[in-house]
Design a protein around this nucleic acid. Structure first.
Length: 562
RNA sequence: UGGGGAGUGGUGUAAUCGGUAGCACGACGGAUUCUGAUUCCGUUAGUCGGGGUUCAAGUCCCUGCUCCCCAGCCA
């Protein structure tokens, strides 16, 4: 093995702040293992922000040869459902997250949690409080004023134990009593002002059924669940930073394995909204067709849109991890999927807005039999047979009557290459009664390299044989919102005012016949148009429906729009 | 106005003990091209402000500014 040239410094890949923390821990103690977890609440579908967290947690475990758990934070039966559990499991797996045999539920720990609560009561660290929700709010104080002690704060241990037992036994109605940690009502951190550990909730839980009528709060559950599972790095988003002292407090009082909580900034993407509440609103008010609408940045929506796990992971890798509240440009997401699909998507031809072209010197009933490569950069992908008869369709926008000099496509008297077929010269423009271009008559030369007027033909356009073309529904998706930050709305308005009215355009396109065999979820590049995927819900055998995943980069179009 | 966090080109993200501000994406320009795609090459532009310490400050000290989070029996 040749020695490394000293003149070339080994460039260490840059490490995010969490990796740096772990590196430092391991430098001090080589024994430390990395054990992370992804802890969703099963009260909705996962979105791309969760993907960032999954990739982070799973990626860390992978990198340090540690472990990764999937654990549901199911402490609020009022909001949680099995349906969400199932979809989350499916999405995490699709993304590539592997929890092996470590699929857990916080509800698995309800007994242990209760025993620990009893211990805290016995140690004088928790008490049963009879304040109503409203009274508790009044006692809590404000951001600038300390709170007042609850009158029940000084209840004796025996009474607390008895009351807690009876809460659990179902003697009290919802909301009548809580178990609270006895910390400090004057703390500047409101989370430490005697936070609720248990509330009475006579509700059916998707896993524990009717076994419980008191349920532990997030704060009392999360850290201990981490501890039970032997989690070493409990990674969560920034809004939990204020909860860390409480997280640590419970662990310390209970004298159990202490995981370390580290917070990072959640993902924001331009032209989109990310909160569960808003996504839910989009679905419920019918602004989109459902949680898996391809315009939604839910994992399910992205899957249906044609995003691949590889592209999602590459995206998450690229955006990095930090504590700065940033907004990533949607273009990065689009770039990630282009990069992936450019490699793996087979090329096909499809015309979105057809314009009929008659090739005057091609004989009717004697179509040409052509062979076109499936992937020009990867000839090993082979070729497919494509027929070309006397009549074909080209894209309306590939013809211009009064074309600017830099227009390399078809114009009256001009020449263009028909991809994989030959050169067409526009001899005649046929118009309808309104004066709109209805049809073109072109002469055709099957020599693709033929020169015209001594010059080689610069432009190449795609086309589809009119006779054998498939009429298929194609859905052209665009950003769901018209502005970068949809939450910035006009006075009195909401993010809904920024909805993009043309985020979905449905068209019946002309596709080359081989596309009839597309299998659900299969991606293609429609040459010069974009990447498309056969819709996994609405496609029928032999009759696919395509969703546009993303357009191709279009520097010419962009320069024209300016 | 209490407490907890955060500010590096257009957007993200690095910079070891205080030692050449790097990388990616975008934008712009060019080369190649049977996809105005891809690929390749090049250019562009940054340490929130003001003081201070120092031979040397993104980094240390002081001070100011801006943004985010917290007053659920949600997570």
């Amino acid at each position: 093995m040749p020695a490394e040239s000293p003149s070339v410094p080994t460039s260490r890949p840059s490490r995010n702040f969490i990796q740096q923390i772990i590196d430092a821990d391991r430098a001090k103690n080589p024994q430390v293992v990395v054990h992370t977890r992804f802890p969703p609440e099963p009260n909705g579908y996962l979105h791309i922000g969760h993907a960032k967290s999954i990739c982070l947690n799973f990626g860390l475990a992978n990198e340090y040869e540690g472990k990764f758990n999937l654990r549901f934070d199911d402490t609020n039966p009022a909001k949680e459902e099995q349906e969400y559990v199932d979809s989350i499991i499916d999405d995490v797996r699709w993304l590539g997250g592997d929890w092996e045999d470590r699929l857990f539920f916080a509800s698995d720990y309800f007994d242990q949690l209760y025993d620990w609560a009893v211990k805290l009561v016995k140690n004088g660290k928790a008490y049963v409080c009879d304040l109503t929700a409203e009274e508790m709010r009044e006692h809590r104080g404000t951001l600038t004023e300390p709170g007042k002690d609850s009158p029940y704060r000084t209840r004796g241990v025996e009474e607390n134990l008895d009351l807690l037992e009876r809460m659990k036994a179902g003697e009290f109605p919802d909301g009548s009593r809580t178990l609270r940690a006895k910390i400090d009502m004057a703390s500047p951190n409101l989370n430490l002002r005697d936070p609720v550990m248990y509330r009475v909730k006579h509700a059916h839980h998707h896993r524990t059924g009717d076994n419980w009528c008191i349920y532990p709060s997030y704060d009392y559950t999360h850290g201990q669940s981490d501890s039970i599972e032997g989690i070493t790095y409990s990674i969560c988003t920034l809004e939990f930073e204020n909860h860390r002292p409480l997280y640590d407090w419970f662990i310390q009082q209970l004298e159990i394995h202490p995981p370390r909580q580290i917070e990072f900034a959640r993902l924001n993407l331009s032209y989109s909204v990310m909160s569960k509440r808003k996504l839910l609103q989009l679905v419920q008010e019918g602004h989109v067709a459902g949680w898996d609408d391809p315009r939604m940045l839910t994992i399910r929506g992205l899957r249906r849109r044609g995003y691949t796990p590889e592209a999602m992971r590459a995206f998450c890798e690229r955006i990095g991890v930090a504590k700065f509240n940033s907004t990533i440009d949607m273009a990065w997401l689009e770039d990630a999927i282009r990069e992936d699909l450019n490699e793996r998507a087979m090329r096909r031809m499809a015309v979105m807005r057809p314009l009929r072209v008659v090739l005057t010197n091609v004989q009717p009933g004697e179509p040409l039999e052509l062979e076109v490569p499936n992937h020009p950069q990867k000839l090993e992908e082979g070729k497919r047979k494509v027929k070309m008869g006397r009549e074909i369709f080209i894209e309306q926008e590939d013809f211009m009557e009064d074309a600017p000099k830099k227009f390399f496509r078809l114009k009256p008297g001009g020449a263009v290459r028909l991809r994989g077929a030959g050169i067409a010269i526009c001899e005649e423009v046929v118009k309808d009664k309104e004066g709109k271009v209805a049809e073109l008559k072109c002469s055709f030369n099957p020599d693709t390299t033929a020169q015209v007027d001594g010059k080689k033909v610069k432009g190449t356009i795609h086309w589809v044989d009119a006779d054998s073309a498939l009429d298929c529904e194609v859905r052209l998706y665009d950003h769901l919102f018209t502005v970068e930050i949809p939450d910035v709305a006009p006075e009195g308005g909401s993010f809904l005012d920024n909805l993009n009215p043309s985020s979905l355009e449905t068209t019946i396109a002309k596709l080359e016949p081989s596309l009839a065999d597309a299998t659900s979820g299969e991606s293609f590049q429609f040459e010069r148009v974009g990447y498309f995927v056969a819709d996994s819900v609405d496609s029928k055998p032999g009759k696919p429906i395509f969703n546009r995943t993303v357009t191709l980069r279009d520097t010419w179009g962009k320069s024209q729009r300016k």
